[in-house]
């Protein structure tokens, strides 16, 4: 009986799958689901007596799912589980990254400045909108690597912090 493990918002969730011809019976905790692959990333499953079509596709360590217009992500556990998703720098609290590629509108802090958690650090313009990016932890600004007008991607730290241990 194949077993699977996924991470849902960092929480490990396990499942076991039994094959019954065209359909699969999946046990997740206390609940059981009949799942039938329909092809083209689509699956049918019955919940509360109602059949639903669910889309599921895998890309770069993440399962993307669409259930009743709700979009969910499950991560594959593994050695690189925290950097699996592209652009996921959530573990690096000492670096400020752009949430999406864009243009730097304003740098709100200077090297040497003490900053607190959730303080806006930089404003990045993308898709005609200005998006403030906040510090994930308090500390002191160690480096500012870009200036207003620069284009940034999601993998180059804009600002680096020194976080007291």
């Amino acid at each position: 009986m194949p077993k699977h493990e996924f991470l849902f918002n960092g929480e490990s969730v396990e499942s076991s799958v039994e094959n019954h011809g065209k359909t699969f019976r999946v046990t997740v905790g206390e609940r059981q689901f009949e799942v039938c692959p329909l092809g083209n990333n689509l699956f049918a499953t019955t919940v509360n007596g109602r059949k639903r079509t669910v889309a599921a596709a895998f890309n770069k360590g993440v399962f993307y799912l669409d259930i009743d217009a709700v979009q969910l992500e499950l991560q594959e556990p593994g050695e690189d589980q925290f950097s699996g998703a592209a652009g996921d720098h959530s573990a690096e609290k000492d670096k400020i990254y752009a949430p999406m590629p864009g243009k730097i509108v304003k740098i709100l802090v200077a090297v040497g400045e003490e900053v607190s958690e959730k303080q806006p650090m930089v404003i990045v313009e993308a898709m005609k909108m200005e998006n403030p990016v906040n510090a994930a932890a308090g500390g002191r600004v160690k480096a500012v690597n870009f200036k207003p007008g620069d284009q940034v991607d999601t993998d180059s730290p804009i600002i680096e912090l020194e976080i007291p241990q």
Partner: peptide, 24 residues
């Protein structure tokens, strides 16, 4: 989103086993 947690895991478990996903 937690309401959908088990259902999502159930579908992903089957998706992980299916050929098309493997090719992805």
């Amino acid at each position: 989103q937690a309401t959908y947690k088990e259902m999502a895991v159930a579908v992903a478990s089957v998706a992980a086993m299916s050929t098309s996903t493997a090719s992805v």
